[in-house]
Amino acid sequence: MKAFTQLQSLVMPLDRANVDTDAIIPKQFLKSIRRAGFGPYLFDEWRYLDRGEPEMDCSGRPLNMEFVLNQPQYQGAEILLTRENFGCGSSREHAPWALEDHGFRAIIAPSFADIFFNNCFKNGILPIVLDADVVDGLFSEVENGYQLSIDLDSQTVKTPSGKSIHFAVDETRKFRLMNGLDDIALTLQRADNIKAYESERAKRAPWLFAE
């Protein structure tokens, strides 16, 4: 996993609430058995005028120029600014894979759906929750070339006018993200705790261990 420490980047505003995972990556792309390569299909139904299919070459597909992702001023944006309950719907990790593959490394919103929020941290994406009125403020500021700087260590977002906004993040998640650490390896360091738990639980609930 890519470590995340600091990021200064263009911001792409996606002014919609309740953006669900079907919108982020439509289900036909879930048929892939790979983990990479979902970027060209990110927001497929909003982004293209035709219908996307897995493995399709996207280079010649007709673009919906009304959709922000296609607008020239936001090309290269690594920060996504959006509205409440982003990532609701299914548990598909293809959603953060697609966002990450496209190049987004941070998402700012007033709230996120739980499973999606979790999945972001496992894929090197920092989801930042800011108050709805702060998010409103950012939306009103976004214009050509608008950039934000994010510093995970100090948990701040800096606006071009120099305003600094603090955000909250769990210590464990922050540590793992800043160091790009593999969760499984960390848990396996607790193998003795797991075994101790299992032997104690087997006494309380032997039916679960009658394998």
Partner: peptide, 17 residues
């Protein structure tokens, strides 16, 4: 429900954070 990284994590450790 969990994401694929957690599926892998639960397969390998029988645990989740």
């Amino acid at each position: 429900g969990i994401g694929t990284s957690e599926v892998e994590h639960a397969l390998a450790t029988q645990c989740l954070t």
